[in-house]
Design a protein around this nucleic acid. Sequence first.
DNA 1: TTGACAACATACCCAGTAGTATGTTCATCA
DNA 2: TGATGAACATACTACTGGGTATGTTGTCAA
Lengths: 215, 215
Amino acid sequence: MTPCVPEQILDHARADILRAAATCFMERGYTETSIDDVAHALGATKGRIYHHFRSKADLFASVFRAGMEMNYAAVEPYRTLPGPAAVRWRRMAMAHAMQMIVTRPFQRTVWMGVEMHLRGATTPQQREVMADLIRLRSDYSAIFREVIVKAREEGDFDFGSVSITNQLMFMTLNSPIFWYAPRAGETRADLEELAEQVVTCAWRGLGGKEVRGQS
Amino acid sequence: MTPCVPEQILDHARADILRAAATCFMERGYTETSIDDVAHALGATKGRIYHHFRSKADLFASVFRAGMEMNYAAVEPYRTLPGPAAVRWRRMAMAHAMQMIVTRPFQRTVWMGVEMHLRGATTPQQREVMADLIRLRSDYSAIFREVIVKAREEGDFDFGSVSITNQLMFMTLNSPIFWYAPRAGETRADLEELAEQVVTCAWRGLGGKEVRGQS
DNA sequence: TTGACAACATACCCAGTAGTATGTTCATCA
DNA sequence: TGATGAACATACTACTGGGTATGTTGTCAA
């Protein structure tokens, strides 16, 4: 029998590191973040991190993946909602925008990952891993793309190029990762109001009809 | 008499370096770009760069400043246009969006600079210089802010929070610096059509009325 | 109680890079 | 024509940071 493998504990140990790493990556960027920085944020040393992750690139990729998986999980409940695609889109967009605010360190890391991949700033074997992650993100993007196309067919949206529109839409929905700053004593409702503004702006960009007070 | 100072030539030498640096910064990011990289892109060595710029940070700041000055110059002709603010906004937004496409390396460097400043990833004395550049950008942002507020007063725009809306608007207008990729045989008209789509999306986000075929 | 192994900490190596100190070349001017 | 300085190139230093090799400690199973 293998000597007791407390999977929960191990996952917990990894999750702690991931959170610290995500924060460091957000605050300092990838290259500017040293493994020692992440370790320091944990009150630990390099050894702890290299025990759970093979390299800095691996750590980064794990943060990326975790961020994307959280997005999938947040949107999943609304994907199969019956009714107009435009309404479905609004729920999904709202969930997405909230994700950008609540899990900001992870989402900024995802963003950095995309930028780095576009720049090809990785070694060949890392590019394979990254390509996988980028696919994960593309698939996620495709989910929204399908919905806005459907909504256009149903006459609720009105826009030109699908690919450009999808880019612009995500740009708006993702934007909180850049300008949102947590305030003391902020409630969930405050955040939802913020997200609401963002979603409304994106909705308009898609050529959605003006409506008031829809959640 | 000072020994012949051919200002044109010197500016030209600096401009060459700035262009190369902007491209390198865009393709690899700030930290990933070594001075040797920039030199190599010029078919030269470090000496050439350190002769014209005191440090890597100084080079970066110069690229940033050049980018912002180009933006000011592009928008300037439309700032004092008579007539509705909404129309004025459209011209300015169009000029801005075109700038994002045409001077992309510089604009991405500007973006990186803002991110770095928000992260505080600079030394104290560099922060002073950077603070100046950030001010330059804030002032530029304020120009647009005034126009959209005016247009709202005139009843042509309709939006909630000014600061958030301005953020979202710039997010959309700036977005080509992330996803635009030059194509072979692309004409000026092609680029303007791209910019047009971006501006229209931003226009809608601002609550502008639907109109067809305005330049 | 003892081996074995997970989960770290410590100490060290080495590649890459910002910055500098020192040539070298060539045009200009007294 | 020689001196001077701009405009670079070359050679070198010092330091940062990723990665590794090795030590240490506590825990669990036999």
